[in-house]
Simulated scan of single mutants.
Amino acid sequence: MPSIQVRLSVNGRRHELELDTRVSLLDCLREHLALTGTKKGCDQGACGACTVLVDGERVNSCLVLAAQCQDVEITTIEGLGEPGRAMREAFVRHDGLQCGYCTPGQICSAVAMLAEYGAGVPSAVGAASLTDAEIRERLAGNLCRCGAYNGILAAVREAGR
């Protein structure tokens, strides 16, 4: 299989890896860097369980090749720092998780979503305030099979204050 030398910056640490050119960012994180907080759900970009931040923007890591991520900063659930801690605590307080499988992707997405909202990035709802409809629209790419949406909504609402 063809391989390539890949230089990645993940959670503030530099990594140099020899990877098959077809390795997704998700598989690189989990299998080559042992960062297993990012979950593999559908492996098709439909569920959001694998959401990470690339230069602060949400991406489904299953749809991105690791080789495409050179010269960018990748942040996983393990590297979110203070915004991630505050969001995790809100998720716990509001029972925004059940099985927990989607939670890392939900939290990464929620942290980035609040930053997008704060920066004035528009959504389809276009609410002037962080309404429940606005939060639902902005987190629509992250699915929860357990149905913990009310708790997730409450956690994001609290963290957004």
Rank of each mutant, 00 (worst) to 15 (best):
G45N: 05
Y149Q: 05
R136P: 07
V52E: 04
T51E: 04
S129R: 14
S123L: 02
V59F: 09
R161Y: 00
R138N: 04
K39M: 06
Q98S: 10
L33M: 11
S123W: 06
A140C: 14
A119Y: 00
G37V: 08
D132P: 03
D71V: 07
T75Y: 01
S61E: 07
L35I: 14
G81S: 10
E82S: 13
G56C: 07
Q70W: 08
M113P: 01
N11A: 08
E18T: 15
E57D: 11
I74P: 04
C42P: 05
R22T: 13
D95L: 11
H32P: 07
E73Q: 14
E134N: 10
V6M: 10
S61V: 04
C102Y: 03
C69T: 06
A112N: 03
R14S: 15
G56Q: 08
L130M: 12
A86R: 15
S109I: 03
T36M: 03
T38N: 04
E57F: 02
G79S: 11
A140E: 10
A110P: 01
A110I: 04
E78I: 11
G151K: 03
V10W: 05
M113K: 03
G105S: 03
V92I: 15
T38R: 03
R85W: 09
L153C: 02
E16A: 14
A66D: 10
G105C: 02
Q5L: 13
L8F: 09
R14H: 14
V6W: 04
V10Q: 05
P2Q: 12
Q98C: 04
S129Q: 13
T51A: 14
V72N: 10
E116G: 03
E134H: 08
R138P: 08
T36W: 00
V64T: 12
T131H: 08
I4Q: 15
A90V: 06
E18S: 15
Q70F: 10
E16D: 14
S129D: 13
A90W: 04
V52L: 08
A140W: 00
T75S: 11
R7L: 12
C99D: 06
L114E: 04
I74L: 11
A86D: 12
M113E: 05
G120C: 05
M1G: 15
D27E: 14
R138Y: 09
G160D: 08
A115S: 12
T51R: 04
I135K: 05
A148R: 02
G12F: 12
V52F: 10
G100K: 06
L26R: 06
I4S: 15
A159H: 11
P104W: 02
Q68H: 14
L19P: 06
V125L: 04
A154C: 00
A110N: 02
V6S: 08
Y101G: 00
V64P: 00
D27R: 14
V92T: 11
V23K: 14
I107Q: 02
I74Y: 09
Y101F: 15
D43R: 00
F91I: 13
G48A: 08
G147D: 05
R14T: 13
F91V: 12
R88K: 14
G96K: 01
V54H: 04
G147F: 03
A110D: 04
I4R: 15
L25H: 06
A155H: 01
G100Y: 05
Q106W: 09
D20L: 12
L130K: 10
G12A: 09
H15C: 11
G12V: 07
V125D: 06
I107D: 02
G96V: 01
Y149H: 11
D55F: 03
E134C: 06
G151V: 02
A155W: 01
T51H: 06
E89Y: 04
R161F: 00
